[in-house]
């Protein structure tokens, strides 16, 4: 049954269902990394929509919840590698806050795989593309997000 349920997305809504992923990228590393993916013409699935924030620590868990509430199938938060934060310590806050938040999501029965926190530097265009690819594959496997989304 569960297998069929996972397939619901593609069977009932047709092949058209594509996961929608909202990405919060820090301006200094990850947004620049995504820019580099573009400059280097590294291709990745078009499912991701990017919002620029100054630092990953600007990302309030509320924003993530809001995205899920509005039907996002996945949320990616990406910042500088620990130790390389443009604002010295911002990504450490991100790491702690979102680890906790992810546990909370898991606790209330939400698939934690839908929220990813990744470190992508300004020189890691390839890594950004791979992160998106990996996420899209994972979420396609999970199917549409319906737990939090207001239907």
């Amino acid at each position: 049954m569960s297998v069929n349920e996972r397939d619901v997305g593609t069977t009932t809504e047709g092949a058209a269902w594509e996961p929608k992923i909202v990405a919060f990228l820090c301006n200094w590393c990850s947004y620049a990394g995504a820019d580099l993916a573009g400059v280097s013409r590294v291709k990745y699935p078009a499912n991701v929509r990017i919002i620029r924030v100054p630092c990953s620590s600007r990302v309030n868990p509320q924003f993530i919840l809001r995205a899920f509430e509005r039907g996002a199938d996945g949320v990616l938060v990406a910042g500088c590698h620990p130790g390389d934060c443009h604002y010295v310590t911002g990504n450490y806050f991100t790491r702690r806050r979102l680890t906790l938040f992810k546990r909370l999501l898991e606790y209330v029965g939400f698939e934690p795989e839908r929220l990813k926190v990744r470190w992508v530097s300004a020189s890691e265009g390839q890594r950004f593309a791979e992160t998106v690819k990996e996420m899209v594959d994972g979420i396609k496997h999970l199917g549409p997000q319906k737990r939090i989304a207001r239907l």
Partner: peptide, 23 residues
């Protein structure tokens, strides 16, 4: 950001890229 984040990275799926650009 239609260039680095869209047209340059999704040239193979123009329809999806178009939807993304509008978003």
């Amino acid at each position: 950001n239609l260039r680095e984040h869209c047209s340059w990275v999704h040239p193979d799926t123009p329809e999806q890229a178009q939807r993304k650009a509008v978003d």
